[in-house]
Design a protein around this nucleic acid. Structure first.
Lengths: 198, 198
DNA sequence: GCGGCTATTGTGGATATCCGCAGAGTCGGC
DNA sequence: GCCGACTCTGCGGATATCCACAATAGCCGC
């Protein structure tokens, strides 16, 4: 389920943030440590992360690194009481969405979280489309993939036949199999699919 | 000409940085104030910017804002002696490439500047391609644009004819004019052009 | 070995696309 | 009024694409 995941080892802060967000109708889950969240995290965990930097055990930054290396692309907002420019710069350059110092403005933080949640939702939608595409691509045979690449490159069947050293008829067969498996009717549609157009 | 533009009101620092970069074969231009650079800036000014935050008159941040609003997309690296997290975060979120506190590591800074210069060069190359594309698009008539959109959407000529309420032959004529003006031979190539594929 | 998947090719015909040749109507500028 | 552009259309033919029917062959698993 899409929600805001608050990772902070200070229960009082988790509670306060939980109250703040729930009062704005933002669903929240609290985690008492980076380790706890990391263990529970799954590739399909959705929403966004509000991460304290300084914690007992694993720091927020380290959690961020580990999540990145596991392919997590959830938006992350860091929350810190002891600002440090190089840390903030490093986190943002690694892809963190924001870096907020305490004390923070409630409304601003809520807005940023809501933006981040919306961003994550959109991103997951895009990725779902890509996953379907990847699944269809996986059903193609080697030869079909080769033909598809040349079709998408704009080559005519006769040219493809020539380049692959096979007859035009065979190219036509592969081509139609590709169209069928990729669920398109024309080369243009196929090109749009693969180049990620609207 | 592509070069590193150093904007700092402290002549000693400009000189020191100038020496550093020229010794690494990075061409440099120094500017004593944000105003001076802003006045000299042109849309075709290439390279990257090394920008001091605190200066007499216009600050580095304000220069950055003004450049952005003028459509400047040169990579900007901020240099500051008095770090401040919200400022750094704000600058990076607005699109600054980096935010470095003094004292800095010479080699690291040089590397980042070289990366930024390379990025700018690539970006300009991409934009040059886009400009050529835009120029060709501008030569199309209204009708040709309509037909092109439908072609790129994957419609067959007969369908296009139907949707526009004209004969197939006319669609063919427009279609071939589009291909000619856009300098492509097939609908697939045209689609790749417009969707920005390799 | 048989069945299924993949790759290959052919024939022949229905559609679609590409193009030259020809002509016609509108609209705006010189 | 003439010229140039844009738009529209038809005819016919050369190519290309789409497809059903039909067949051969290698590879793999049961």
């Amino acid at each position: 389920m899409t929600k805001l995941h608050i990772v902070d080892d200070d229960e009082a802060i988790r509670d306060a943030l939980g109250w703040l967000f729930q009062s704005r109708n933002v669903p929240v889950a609290g985690w008492p440590s980076a380790e706890a969240f990391l263990e529970a995290w799954q590739p399909d965990t959705a929403g966004c992360l509000l991460l304290d930097i300084r914690m007992e055990g694993m720091s927020g930054l380290e959690l961020f690194d580990r999540l990145l290396s596991r392919g997590c692309r959830m938006p992350v907002i860091f929350l810190t009481g002891h600002g440090d420019v190089p840390i903030a710069v490093g986190a943002l350059k690694k892809g963190a969405r924001d870096f907020v110092e305490k004390p923070f403005n409630d409304n601003e933080l809520v807005d940023r979280v809501i933006d981040a949640l919306a961003f994550d939702a959109e991103q997951r939608e895009r990725e779902a489309g890509q996953a379907g595409l990847a699944a269809r691509l996986a059903t193609l045979t080697q030869r079909e993939r080769q033909v598809m690449e040349l079709v998408v490159a704009g080559r005519l069947n006769k040219v493809i036949a020539d380049e692959l050293g096979i007859s035009m008829r065979t190219v036509e067969v592969h081509r139609s199999h590709v169209f069928e498996k990729m669920q398109v009717k024309t080369a243009v549609e196929l090109t749009r699919l693969l180049t990620g157009a609207s």
